[in-house]
Structures are given as C-alpha cells and as structure tokens.
Write a protein that binds this DNA or RNA. Sequence first.
DNA 1: ACAGGCTCCTGCAGGC
DNA 2: TGCCTGCAGGAGCCTG
Length: 303
Amino acid sequence: MPELPEVETIARGVDMLLRGGRIKQFRFGPKPEPFKTSPEEMAEVLPGATIQCVHRSGKHIVFKLTTVPSAHSSRAGGPRNHDSRTNAHRLNRAGSRSGEWIEWIVHLGMTGRLLVSDPDVPLPPHTHCVLSLASGRELRFVDPRRFGRIQLLRSEKLDGHFISTGREPLQIGVKEFAALFHGRQTSIKAALLNQKILAGVGNIYADESLFRAGIRPQRRASRLTGVELERLRQGLRNVLRKAISLGGSSVSDYVDASGEKGLFQFEHMVYRRTGKPCRVCGTPIRRIRIAQRSTHFCPTCQR
DNA sequence: ACAGGCTCCTGCAGGC
DNA sequence: TGCCTGCAGGAGCCTG
C-alpha cells in the first residue's frame, strides 16, 4: 500500500523518466470508477500537453503540465491533433496566451501502480488508463482493487486545492507538530492516519513511527506530553527518510515506476510481525484493531 | 466540529 | 483439488 515513501519514490522515478515529455494520446478502460474527472474530459485536455515536472503531495502524485500555446498546432495529423487544438483554443479563451498550467493528479489507493513501459510490453490486467508520449513510451495506471483515483485540475482551480489536506511530516516543526494533536480526543494512531492532520502517513509508517517513539497506539492524542510528541515527530521523520532511501516498503505488490521493489519491509519493527519477538526486547508483537486498521505494537517498548 | 463506523474492490491465504 | 470465508486498507460518506 503506497504511503509517503512509496509515492515519493514513484514520483521521483516518473519525473526522471518523463519530465519534458509531450503527451500524444490518453486512452482509458471500460470501468470509469478510478476517475474523479471524467476520462472523456482527460482525453480532450491531455493530448498535446507537456509534462513539466512530477512531484508528490501527501499521497498524491502531481503531474504539472502545460497545454499547447495556439502557435503550436503544426504537428503530425490525426484526430488527436484536432482534439488538442480544440482544447488549446478553449483554454486560451479562458485567459492564457502561452499555454495553460494544469495538474493531473494520481492517487494510488491501495494497489495502484504507475508504470513506464514500452508499448510492445503487453498491458497488465486492470490497466485503467494509458498516457502515450511522443517519445514512444507509455505511462500506465494499473489498479486491481480500484481504490485509486485520478483527477484533472485546471489552473483556475489549482490554488488552494491542497489547502484542505494536512501538513507534510518531513517539513513540520516542533511546535506546529504538537499543536496538530492538541485537544484531539481520538487515539494517536487514528490521528496519524487522518490525512487532514498529517498528509502521507498510512498504516505501516504510523505503526513504525509509534514504535520508534515508544508510544502505545491506543493512547489518546491529546494526552501525549511534549516530550512524547517530539519523539514521535523525530521517529516519523527518521522512518520516512530511511524508507525513502530504500525505495519504500514492498508489502503486497508495490513496485516503483520502473518495476523495482522497495527494501524497507526488511526494516519493519512491528508492522505485520504479530507474534514475532520484538527486535529490541524479545516480547511478542501484539496486534489490535484501531480505526478499522490492523495495529501492531510491542507491549514492553511502547507505553 | 469532531469521532467513529461503514463501504467500496479484488486477490490471496487458510481452513475444510 | 476446489470451494468458501475472511482479511488487507485509503478515504469519502454517513451518523451520532
């Protein structure tokens, strides 16, 4: 399940492979559920756009694109060319003279993958959409469980889109971090999973950071001391940075944009280690359920 | 406003 | 071997 380190790894990989590329075509499969924006609209807007960069925001992969300026319509023919010129025309009427900034946003859900492939590689099952690039390569969105979501944001809606999401755990300071949990009556585990509080933390890194901070996941967030919250902030930073450096955790079938697995699953202290001895004290790791999530902790090391 | 529960979806593991 | 059941979980939605 992709969380911050996995999404960061994928975004970096896609950015390296596709930055500067021009989109030739957008194709989509028969099941429209993964789209927040209609696939028909994407097929209209995306062809002709250039990928300026790809980055991560929380668990979202954000493609920053520019659409074609109106002087840019002398390309190879076909119906797609017509689509992109029509679109450029419409966007230009909306007020831009040099091509419009848009964002194509991908959320991988639990089982989503973004894969950069050559077109002659057979499409994997559950491929929901494909971006064909002028370079000849393809970007494929594959998601068996279909919890992922794809969305297109036009420039007039870009400002403020991520305002409603939580803070980035790798950038937040001591006082701001502590303030996030002030007055929260829920468990610290549930609070860590809440994307409106912190963006990017999921079940693996919530459990792992709480272990590193020595805090029991069922503790009420508002009752944690300043010292404990700072241990948690540091634990979270350390675990996320280490995981990014190892390319994320490959727990189920996660792979990066090139199809490589991550290595951080071998560093897990508690996650999915129920009944196994704690790597620090030897006590068997316990599993409970908090906020409908499996929660793993060491009853000796975490208080 | 906040907290907690339900739901979506499919592949896989385990039991019989 | 084959079928059935339960489990995995991000986040939107609903309810209290």
